[in-house]
């Protein structure tokens, strides 16, 4: 991308393993565009990274990602992704494996 456009991207990876897992899941479907969506959704729910993610904000973040991703994935694949995100939330927050 940098070579093609002659400009640099300055996407900042949030560095949270939960976020990274969401990003990996989405990246497998839409490639680098996932970073734009993740970055935007993460910024929205954490006040630009000032707040830590909790169960509620994780749900909000996933909803935001799903909303953005729908136009790229179509309704069928989005529904599947939504279920996969629910499972990730469960793994990280509800079962106490993380945070």
């Amino acid at each position: 991308m940098t070579e093609a456009t002659g400009r640099k991207l300055h996407l900042v990876g949030p560095g949270d393993p939960f976020v990274t897992e969401l990003e990996n899941k989405l990246e497998g479907l839409i490639g680098i565009l996932s970073r734009y969506i993740i970055e935007k959704s993460y910024s929205e729910v954490t006040d630009n990274g000032h707040d830590k993610l909790n169960l509620d904000s994780a749900h909000s973040m996933c909803s935001s990602i799903i909303e953005e991703a729908t136009i790229l994935l179509g309704p069928k694949r989005t529904e599947e992704l939504n279920s996969e995100f629910e499972q990730i939330i469960k793994n990280y927050f509800k079962e106490g494996k993380k945070k």
Partner: peptide, 16 residues
């Protein structure tokens, strides 16, 4: 800029 490049489109399509 990044969102509009052929490289991004290619990356997106490859996965899609």
């Amino acid at each position: 800029w990044g969102l509009a490049s052929f490289e991004t489109l290619q990356d997106f399509l490859k996965n899609h």
